[in-house]
Nucleic acid binder design. Structure first.
Lengths: 251, 251
DNA sequence: CCGGGCTGTTACAAACCGTCACAGTTTCGC
DNA sequence: GCGAAACTGTGACGGTTTGTAACAGCCCGG
């Protein structure tokens, strides 16, 4: 149903265990002995402001993590997939609410003990640190998206991230989208109408095609990348980049 | 000129050393022996894509950290103040460009050695971890701002954060704003015109008053908090919050 | 002291996206 | 299997923000 891979999200809600999936001591193995807890669709794991007593590992399903302004406006700061961690932070209280998008299975770890384990193990620490760095990078991408991208670029970026993750290297990946249009809208800083219209336009352009109700087929991955507005080339490191930046912003 | 305190920013660009300003072993003391380097206004410390060879401590001045889309759109993901760290990440290449907003003084630390020191010291690690958590929290605030706040709320939020930091508990804090309108616009996801208009409106409402060219006086801090659109109450923890959230989003 | 360049401000028209309204479809509960 | 509720898609309209432009103020050097 949903792959084990992960996508951009943030929080102390941590991403894939990229560096060491099969090491003897991995972050994931920490949770191995804990009982599996199930949360039905729409149920909250915890609320913003609750005492931050536990760290969770997502075993199955998808979560949304969000904050709400006093007048009801909601901002989803990330979606969590199997393998992600939830609630990693030094704060006394959770800074956000976490809810199950689909039926979700979690393992729970007591917060203080988690810290102790991390402090004790020189193998776990760099893994956690790497996760936090990935998380930070994802948060930056999201800030770029929210600050400067058009509605079309936002939707395209969103679909692209999921497609690359779930679809791997397939040419026409089938992308599961378990969240509702409202979830997407609150994640992308748009309204559901704009999301709907944009999805329709992408369909009419032949970039994507509806598959099932909560899934699409990406027909033109390259075009989607262009629409996403990112120089996704992959050679934007090292030597050349500096000169380009300088040329654009000489100051 | 600019206080030692810090403000919201992100990156591996780390915030205040909140927990241990005077400990024998602090993150800051790590950099003590390094020579002081000066960067003039507008100069880059490094560019997005450069090899990530060093970690920096900001000693004096203000930096901006940003990314640029292929067509020139710029997003400032944070401003760095004295005491902040820059370039803390496990990536091979910097993910963003860092430039001096004012004349800036830095100390440089070799990346690998920094990692070693962190790994070695059980006192430094929690400090760094706490910094990263603060950074993550700031990134979330910024996502909320960019995703759902109006132009006025964004500007008010920005001023409020600086005012609380620089002005302490003063009733009418004088807020230094060393960055240009363009910097503010690219940080808040607006245009310079909108920033200008909004600042003018806040002045006309008596909420702020111009002081010098790059400074304002906050005349009504409470009103600024209201305009910022955050429930800044401070009792939004624990018991009550859950029920409220539930009421708003029963799902 | 004066002039050029940059930053900041204001005005106006236009575009994008949000708001409102409604219809079609799916899902869920009974 | 049925009905109600939730979710989705589409259109018309309006508002906030943008973009363009012109102008004023400040800093700099000549």
């Amino acid at each position: 149903m949903i792959s084990q891979a992960t996508m951009s999200q943030q929080h102390g809600a941590v991403r894939r265990f990229a560096t060491a999936p099969s090491q003897a001591v991995s972050l994931r193995s920490l949770f191995g002995g804990q009982p599996l807890e199930t949360f039905e669709t729409g149920m909250a794991i915890f609320w913003e402001g609750d005492d931050a007593r536990h760290v969770f590992e997502v075993v199955e399903g998808v979560l949304r993590v969000f904050r709400i302004l006093s007048d009801g406006r909601r901002v989803i700061t990330g979606f969590l997939y199997p393998g992600d961690l939830l609630g990693v932070s030094l704060k006394d209280h959770y800074l956000y609410t976490a809810e199950a998008v689909t039926r979700t299975k979690l393992r729970r770890y007591e917060h203080g003990r988690f810290q102790d384990e991390i402090n004790r193990s020189p193998e776990l620490r760099p893994q956690l640190f790497a996760c936090l760095c990935d998380e930070m990078a994802a948060a930056q991408d999201q800030m770029v998206l929210l600050a400067r991208k058009s509605a079309e670029e936002r939707v395209a970026s969103f679909l692209l991230v999921i497609a690359r993750r779930l679809g791997g290297e397939q040419k026409h990946p089938v992308v599961e989208i378990p969240m509702t249009r409202l979830d997407m809208a609150d994640y992308l800083g748009l309204t559901i109408e704009t999301v709907s219209r944009t999805m329709t336009r992408l369909t009419n352009c032949g970039v994507i095609a509806p598959s099932s109700r909560h899934a699409i087929v990406v027909r033109r991955l390259g075009q989607l990348a262009v629409l996403a507005g990112e120089a996704d080339d992959g050679d934007n490191h090292a030597a050349g980049a500096g000169a380009i930046q300088q040329a654009v912003w000489p100051n």
